[in-house]
C-alpha cells in the first residue's frame, strides 16, 4: 500500500472525470452495438405472441398497429393481421391491474366478429406454481371460441363459465378481466370505424377531457 496516491483537489477531479468519461464512452459503444438486437428481440417476442393468437397472416401487424382508448385507464394496442388483404383477426395487447401481484399483460386474438381465437400471456408477476398456470393449455383453451359478447367469461365462483385455476381465483379473475377489456375496446372501436380512424387523436383527447371533468 505504498503507492497510495495523495489526494489533491485537481487530481481528484481529473481522475473522476477520466473514469466517468471512459465509462460513458464504452457504454455508448455497447449501447449502439446492442440496440438492434434488443429491438429485434422485443419485436420478435411481440410477433411470436401475435402468431400464437390469430390465424396465419402475411402482413406485419406491428407496422399498422393502432391504439384504442380505454375508459379510466391506459389505452390498449391493436395489431390487425391480414392474410392477403383479408382481415383474419386482430391481436389486442391488453392488461389488467387486478392480478394477485398487480399487472398482467395478455395478447388476445379476436376474429373480426369478436370471437376469441386464442390468448397468450405476455407478462405477469403471479405466484410460481399457482397463478403461473394461467399459461397452461387447458386454462387458455377455455377461452378459445368464446365470444365475450354472448358468453359469460367470469369464473364459476362469479356465476361465469370459466374454471378458475385451483388456489388462484384472483389470477383467474384478473385474466378474464383483461380478456373482457380487450373485447370491449375492440367492439367499441369498431362500432364507428370511420370517425374513430380519422379522429383517433381527437377522440382520445376529448375522452380524456370528459373524464377529467367527470372526476
Amino acid at each position: 500500500m505504498a503507492n497510495k496516491k495523495e489526494s489533491t483537489f485537481i487530481n481528484m477531479v481529473v481522475a473522476l472525470l477520466i473514469v466517468t468519461l471512459v465509462a460513458a464512452t464504452t457504454l455508448g459503444f455497447v449501447y449502439e452495438f446492442t440496440k438492434a438486437p434488443i429491438a429485434l428481440a422485443k419485436l420478435n417476442k411481440k410477433l411470436n405472441a401475435i402468431k400464437l393468437v390469430v390465424p396465419e397472416f402475411t402482413n406485419n401487424p406491428d407496422s399498422i398497429k393502432y391504439e384504442i382508448p380505454v375508459e379510466g385507464g391506459l389505452p390498449v394496442m391493436a395489431y390487425p393481421a391480414y392474410n392477403n388483404e383479408e382481415l383474419v383477426g386482430t391481436a389486442i395487447e391488453t392488461y389488467t391491474m387486478k392480478g394477485f401481484s398487480g399487472l398482467i399483460k395478455l395478447m388476445v386474438g379476436l376474429a373480426p366478429d369478436g370471437t376469441i381465437h386464442s390468448v397468450s400471456v405476455l407478462e405477469h408477476k403471479e405466484t410460481p406454481g399457482l397463478g403461473t398456470h394461467m399459461s397452461d393449455e387447458w386454462y387458455i383453451n377455455q377461452y378459445k371460441g368464446k365470444n365475450p359478447g354472448t358468453d359469460n367469461l367470469k369464473v364459476k365462483k362469479d356465476m361465469g363459465e370459466i374454471d378458475a385455476i385451483t388456489a388462484a381465483t384472483i389470477s383467474s379473475r384478473a385474466f378474464s378481466d383483461a380478456v373482457q377489456k380487450a373485447y370491449d375496446a375492440y367492439v367499441n372501436y369498431n362500432i364507428e370505424p370511420e370517425s374513430a380512424v380519422v379522429d383517433s387523436t381527437l377522440n382520445t383527447q376529448k375522452e380524456g377531457g370528459e373524464n377529467e371533468s367527470a372526476n
Binding site: N3, K4, K5, E6, S7, M12, A15, T20, A23
Partner: peptide, 16 residues
C-alpha cells in the same frame, strides 16, 4: 488503483 486518489476511490469504483 495506482492512478486513483485515495479520497475518490469509492466513487470511482462505483462508476466502474
Amino acid at each position: 488503483k495506482s492512478g486513483i486518489p485515495d479520497k475518490v476511490r469509492i466513487p470511482a469504483f462505483i462508476v466502474i
